[in-house]
Each structure stands twice: as C-alpha cells, then as structure tokens.
C-alpha cells in the first residue's frame, strides 16, 4: 500500500479556494485503501484546508470575503518581513487549519453529496504541496 502521496499545485495570484477533491481521491484509490482514515495536510503557513460546498462558486467567494472581513489586510501587523497580505494570510491559515482527517469507506472519501475539499490559498501565486496519508482500519 502506498501510504503517502504528495499533490503539487500552482495557485493563482491573490486569494483562492481550489478544489482538490479529485487529486486527494485519486491518491486514496492509488493507495489501495478500502477502509480507514485519510489525513490531508498542507505544510504551509499562508494556505490552509477547508471542506465546503463545491456546488456554487459563490459559496467559495463568500468564504473568501468573510475571512477577509475577519482579517483585513492592514498595515499594523507585527509580522512585516513579507507583505501585509502575507501577514494576513498567516492569521487566516490559523482559522482554517492546516490538516483534515477524512473517513475512507469502500475505497472512497466519505464526503457529503456537495462537500468538496479545498485548498485555501491566502497569498498566491505559489507552488503548494498537499500531503495525503492513508491509514487502514486495524
């Protein structure tokens, strides 16, 4: 069983929510796991993970704009080594989190009908990695 897969992707400029469900599902299928847990982890500090509806693109836009409202790009962040957008991205990443545990059943991610797994990019464009690790039920 292939236990660890790295998904690589290039993100567009600025903020975005990128649907990575298919890539993660493909990693699960490739692993041969039938029943167990899939841990998805993003090893970055200005990009996180969310699960939400992929049916209507406006939902992703709402999530982006609400996160922006909660953490506006401003000039008085303590972290000024990079840009204000970068500093805001660090805070937004703590809100979304960097990892998710998903149930695998019948060789498939047990997601709801409209649920999609999304990489939340807060300071693109960047080259990002998503680590997918599978663990079989004992």
């Amino acid at each position: 069983m292939k236990r660890l897969t790295t998904v690589r992707l290039e993100t567009p400029p600025g903020e975005s929510l990128l649907n990575i469900t298919d890539q993660v599902q493909a990693a699960v299928v490739e692993s041969g796991l039938a029943e167990g847990i899939c841990v998805v982890f993003v090893p970055h500090t200005t990009a996180g993970l969310v699960i939400n509806s992929g049916s209507d693109p406006a939902t992703a836009a709402d999530i982006r704009s609400e996160l922006k409202r909660l953490v506006p790009t401003r000039v008085d962040f303590h972290h000024t080594y990079d840009t204000p957008a970068d500093a805001a991205g660090h805070v937004k990443t703590t809100l979304t989190g960097s990892s998710l545990s998903l149930i695998v059943s019948g060789g498939q991610l047990a997601l709801g009908r409209s649920q999609r797994l999304m990489l939340a990019e807060f300071d693109g464009p960047r080259e990002r990695q998503v680590l997918v690790r599978v663990m079989a039920d004992p």
């Binding site: 840009t83 970068d86 464009p125 960047r126």
Partner: peptide, 10 residues
C-alpha cells in the same frame, strides 16, 4: 513593490 502589491510573491 512587493509590499504595495505591485509585485506578487512569485
């Protein structure tokens, strides 16, 4: 340029 957003990170 980067802080002003004239240049993105990349």
């Amino acid at each position: 340029g980067e802080v002003r957003g004239h240049l993105d990170w990349a």
